[in-house]
């Protein structure tokens, strides 16, 4: 356990939360996109996270000392996943991207982005970011007070 472990851990949390914010921005910006470069409809992205652990983690409190992998190393983004569920359908036959055949003829499929959900996720991402920033601030104050010993 080094001196700056807590700062490094909080930094991983901050970078993950800012990636989440970027993904939410992309979803909101494309909330009415009907075409994408690869031809399909725009689908919303979700960030999948995982805890960083190099070694096997034992799910019990009695880990032998030589199998102990120490304090965790923080969090990382595992991947960005596309949610391929059906988007909302709006009846607009004059739209160039309106569906031409099948039971939904005349409807336009807009992306499956729910602006309200995205805003809620944005708030929780920025709160988590702030929490990690507070951890770094707190570490700094602790080290400062340690440097005052003997003065």
């Amino acid at each position: 356990m080094g001196l700056f472990t807590s700062i490094n851990i909080a930094a991983t949390g901050m970078s993950v939360e800012s990636l989440r914010r970027d993904i939410i921005s992309d979803n909101i910006a494309n909330a009415s996109t009907t075409r994408t470069a690869d031809g399909g409809k725009f689908k919303k992205s979700t960030l999948i996270l995982e805890a960083i652990q190099d070694d096997l983690q034992y799910r019990n409190p009695f880990v032998p000392a030589d199998k102990d992998s120490g304090v965790g190393k923080g969090v990382r983004a595992l991947r960005v996943e596309k949610d391929n569920s059906q988007g909302r359908l709006v009846y607009d036959p004059t739209h160039p991207d309106a569906i031409q055949t099948g039971p939904n003829t005349g409807y336009v499929e807009y992306p499956n982005v729910n602006i309200v959900n995205e805003m809620v996720n944005l708030i929780s991402a920025s709160r988590a970011y702030e929490a990690n920033a507070t951890v770094i601030q707190g570490s700094k104050e602790m080290f400062q007070s340690a440097l005052q010993i003997g003065k």
């Binding site: 356990m1 993950v16 996270l49 304090v71 190393k73 969090v75 929490a131």
Partner: peptide, 24 residues
Amino acid sequence: VSTLRYSVSANNLANAGVPNFKRT
């Protein structure tokens, strides 16, 4: 011990949104 506890709490907080993560 305070430093260790601080790092452990920082790790818990950084992983507050990770599925199946357990606190220490």
